[in-house]
């Protein structure tokens, strides 16, 4: 076979991967965390008072800002008696040298859709209570997620920011002659993402870990410990055992984050 010349970037990448695989096999992580330990989380609520709800989340050195806008709109024809949830993510070019401006790429779309799925499938928001006039007018909940600083695991940072912001959100019903009311909430989903390095599943990967991971797995659970959404990413595989070790860890970590960070 033809010899392939490698660029400096690739050599560095190969060395990094080898090193991280080696220390994982020895039972440790590059920043000293345990395999199932998440980075410190800081949630700063109501960061943007002009929004109907907002939260700034710092997950380690990753930083995202989620704003909720709730406006009137027409219901979808197949769900005339239901409000609408729409989710969008922007990987701002300020957040990383690898992000470019322009319309959302597949990474931003996947990120938004995975966060959306966790909120939607857990039935977090009681959309049936967001009807203004049956079949004609409903409240549309816009979840917009801005990525400000990228140090890995944007899915969990965004999902947490979205849930924290939704928990605080107010429906501006005074605009239609009623009284403002808190966004009706039924459940509180928490998403936990794992990166597979070698044969280890690491919770809440940082950027260095994410870059060398062969597979990624995100699991959203509700307060009953049921799984409500999952997504595997990247071009590596996982075994059934790895899947269930991640499921178990996500139920445990979800419970902890729900109580400690979200106060639920």
């Amino acid at each position: 076979m033809r010899a392939v010349s490698k660029s400096a970037d690739e050599i560095v990448y190969g060395l990094k991967r080898e090193y991280l695989e080696k220390i994982c096999a020895e039972g440790s992580r590059i920043d000293g965390r345990k395999f199932d330990e998440v980075r410190p989380i800081i949630v700063n609520r109501n960061f943007v008072p002009r929004a109907q709800g907002s939260a700034e989340v710092r997950l380690g050195d990753s930083r995202v800002l989620v704003g909720i806008k709730i406006e009137q709109g027409e219901p979808f024809p197949d769900t005339p008696n239901s409000g609408i949830l729409t989710t969008n993510a922007e990987l701002l070019p300020m957040a990383s040298p690898t992000f470019e401006s322009g319309p959302p790429g597949e990474d931003a779309i996947e990120l938004a859709r995975v966060v959306d799925r966790g909120i939607r499938e857990s039935k977090m928001i009681d959309l049936d209570k967001l009807v203004i006039k049956e079949g004609e007018k409903v409240w549309v909940v816009f979840v917009d997620m801005h990525i400000l600083d990228y140090d890995g695991n944007l899915i969990d940072a965004c999902a947490l920011g979205a849930v924290a912001a939704l928990l605080e959100a107010t429906v501006p019903a005074s605009k239609v002659g009623a009284e403002d009311f808190p966004l009706p909430i039924n459940h509180v989903p928490v998403t936990v993402t794992f990166a597979k390095i070698g044969s280890t599943m690491l919770a809440d990967p940082n950027l260095e870990e994410e870059e060398v991971a062969s597979a990624r797995l995100s699991i959203a659970t509700n307060e009953n410990g049921d799984v409500v959404a999952m997504q595997k990413g990247l071009s590596g595989s996982i075994t059934k055992e790895e899947l269930f070790s991640a499921v178990d860890a996500s139920i445990k970590l979800g419970k902890d984050i729900r109580k400690r960070v979200l106060g639920k």
Partner: peptide, 22 residues
């Protein structure tokens, strides 16, 4: 190899149900 290469899920399942489904 029995490796899982694509996995998505939406809805609501307990851990046991998930195991049965897989």
């Amino acid at each position: 190899t029995q490796e899982i290469v694509l996995l998505q899920m939406d809805g609501n399942m307990t851990r046991d149900e998930l195991d049965q489904a897989v």
